[in-house]
Structure formats: structure tokens, C-alpha cells
């Protein structure tokens, strides 16, 4: 199946490498922006066709699946929707169907515009889904997510779009884990004031996300901490369920680990670290590996499902 990548920064080039390594996918094209000369040279060295001509090049290339790591996926989807391609959208704040492979991949099988949420979302959705399944999603009163990424692992788009990263991740937890509607109070920051009331029993289903970028050197691995207020969770049983959830993620992102889990009354905490494996990315950039590997896995799923 023919794939194109829009965006030739760190994420785009790593995606192109992964696509080139997939038995199901062929990286037919990498499209870069005005300042992506270096990225396009790297893509060309991988044997991919490259173009600086933007979306026109993509529509002309006759591809089946498009990975979008640019900052303009909304505009791109408007132009791609009629072409019959599947768009895997890695841009925070996009409008497609939100997917985490081990949590809800099947629910997206009939969708043409898939949204990979965020690297933090990919890290915590399997954990939160496990906790909510254990305790009952209606019993979840409050969810908090704190992610810490090495400064060197994120590019300009992530820095510019921290509000969207937060809003998208919060929406994904509400929709996928809590089965709620993202619309009411879904905007960035909307959870803050409501979240405040959670400790007073008023914040049913409130989700709050915080994001840190750390300048520490050597750069630490990507880390995500979740705190869930949910009565009736049994720590020993939850640990076993989380171990299984983590193993499922490791099938495509080997550096994914749940490193802590503890239950203290109604407060459930779990910690995730993600390292990048292999030589393609520095070890700390587990966030990049996780979201890119998830996107490639979903494209492979699409390729095998639609295989005649």
C-alpha cells in the first residue's frame, strides 16, 4: 500500500523510516515545507520520492494512506476527503476519530480520518482504559495526566501547540476512556475550574492534563503520570491488568513500561516511561517512537483489512 508523509521534521523522517521498514507499506512520497531541505535530503537518502510542492504533490502521487505531521492537517483533510485516502493525523487538535491502537483500533476501522491524539495520549490511554474498566467508567470522578518530555524530543509545532496538546489529550480521555462527549467544556483549560471542584465531590468525569518540557541533560526518557479518583480499585488485580495492557503496547513500541502503580483509598496512581528502541531515535525520544509506531501500526491494520 502506498503511503505519503506530510512534514519532513524529526517526526516525519522517523515515520518515513518506519514506513520503509514495513512489509505492508511503501513510502511513496515525503512532502516538506519551506524550511525542510535537510529533512527532504534525509528522506531522499532513504529512497523516498520527495517534494516541496505541498498537498498537490500528495494528491498527484496516487497514495492510499497519508501521514500528516504538519501543522495544517485541517486544511489538508478538506482537500483529501474526496480523494479516498485514509489520513493518519498526528497533528494535535485535529478533528479525526481519536485512536489508540490497543484501546479502540477496531472502532476506527470504518473511518477515513484517524487522529493519533498526542504522544501523551498514546502513553496514558491504555493505562486509563484499564483503570476505568477495573473500577467502572461511571465511578471515575477525576482523571489527571502529567507528561514530561525531554526538550530535545519536541519540535516547534509541539511548542507552539501546547494548548492543543492539552485539549486533544483531555478530549481523548473523555471520549475513549470515560465514554463521554468531548463537546461540553472540551476547550483547553475548561477542565481547570471544574477540576477544582473534584476534591469536593462535584467534578464527575473531569479530566485535567499538564505538560512539562524539561531542559535536563542528559535528557530523561518520556514519562507520563496518571492520577485517577475512583473508588473500589484493588491494587494487586489492577497491577496484573496494567501489566497485560503494557505488554500489548510493547508489541509495537518495545520501550513502553508501566513503572509504578499504587492505590491509596480512592486515589489510583500509575506511572509510564517510554524509551525509543533501536538506533533510529535517541533513547529519550520514546514519545516520538510511541506515536509514530502507533500510526504505522494503524496503517498496517488498514492495509491488511482492505487487502483483497
Amino acid at each position: 500500500m502506498r503511503a505519503a508523509v506530510i512534514g519532513a521534521g524529526q517526526l516525519g523522517i522517523d515515520l518515513a523510516r518506519r514506513i520503509c521498514g514495513s512489509p505492508w507499506l511503501d513510502c511513496a512520497l515525503v512532502v516538506g515545507g519551506p524550511s525542510s531541505d535537510r529533512g527532504l535530503r534525509l528522506a531522499a537518502a532513504l529512497g523516498c520520492a520527495v517534494s516541496a510542492a505541498g498537498l498537490e504533490a500528495v494528491t498527484a502521487a496516487d497514495v492510499d494512506v497519508v501521514f500528516d505531521v504538519s501543522n495544517a492537517s485541517a486544511r489538508h483533510w478538506a482537500d483529501l476527503v474526496a480523494t479516498g485516502v485514509v489520513l493518519l493525523d498526528l497533528t494535535p487538535g485535529s478533528s479525526g476519530t481519536m485512536v489508540a491502537p490497543t484501546v479502540n483500533a477496531a472502532s476506527a476501522d470504518s473511518c477515513w480520518h484517524l487522529n493519533l491524539v498526542s504522544c501523551g495520549g498514546q502513553a496514558v490511554l491504555p493505562v486509563l482504559e484499564t483503570i476505568a474498566r477495573h473500577g467502572g467508567r461511571d465511578a471515575v470522578q477525576y482523571v489527571e495526566v502529567v507528561t514530561t518530555a525531554a526538550a530535545a524530543s519536541v519540535g516547534r509545532h509541539t511548542r507552539l501547540n501546547l494548548d492543543e496538546y492539552i485539549a486533544t489529550t483531555q478530549d481523548a480521555v473523555r471520549q475513549i476512556v470515560l465514554g463521554g462527549d468531548a463537546a461540553p467544556g472540551a476547550g483547553p483549560g475548561a477542565g481547570h475550574e471544574a477540576g477544582h471542584g473534584a476534591g469536593h465531590g462535584a467534578g464527575h468525569g473531569v479530566v485535567k492534563v499538564l505538560a512539562n518540557l524539561t531542559p535536563a541533560l542528559p535528557a530523561p526518557a518520556f514519562r507520563a503520570e496518571v492520577a485517577v479518583i475512583c473508588p473500589g480499585v484493588e491494587e494487586r488485580a489492577l497491577r496484573a491488568e496494567l501489566a497485560a495492557a503494557a505488554a500489548a503496547v510493547r508489541a509495537f513500541a518495545p520501550g513502553y513500561q508501566i513503572v509504578a502503580c499504587r492505590v491509596d483509598g480512592d486515589l489510583v496512581r500509575a506511572s509510564v516511561t517510554v524509551t525509543a528502541t533501536g538506533a533510529r531515535l535517541p533513547a529519550y525520544a520514546g514519545n516520538v517512537e510511541l506515536i509514530n509506531a502507533a500510526a504505522v501500526l494503524l496503517a498496517e491494520r488498514y492495509a491488511t483489512l482492505r487487502k483483497p
Binding site: 494548548d163 492539552i166 483549560g189 475548561a190 505538560a211 524539561t214
Partner: peptide, 26 residues
């Protein structure tokens, strides 16, 4: 940014904040 969002700034200015400090690690 990362702890708060643009919406928090909008609400604060609506409430009469006149000096807004935006902070980042070094």
C-alpha cells in the same frame, strides 16, 4: 504554558489582570 492555557489567560484578563507573566523553563 503546559500548566495553564490561553483560555486561562483570557479569563484572567477578563477578571482585570493587567500584567501577565508567561513562564517557561530556561
Amino acid at each position: 504554558p503546559g500548566w495553564g492555557t490561553g483560555d486561562d489567560i483570557r479569563r484572567a484578563v477578563d477578571h482585570g489582570a493587567e500584567v501577565v507573566r508567561v513562564a517557561a523553563h530556561c
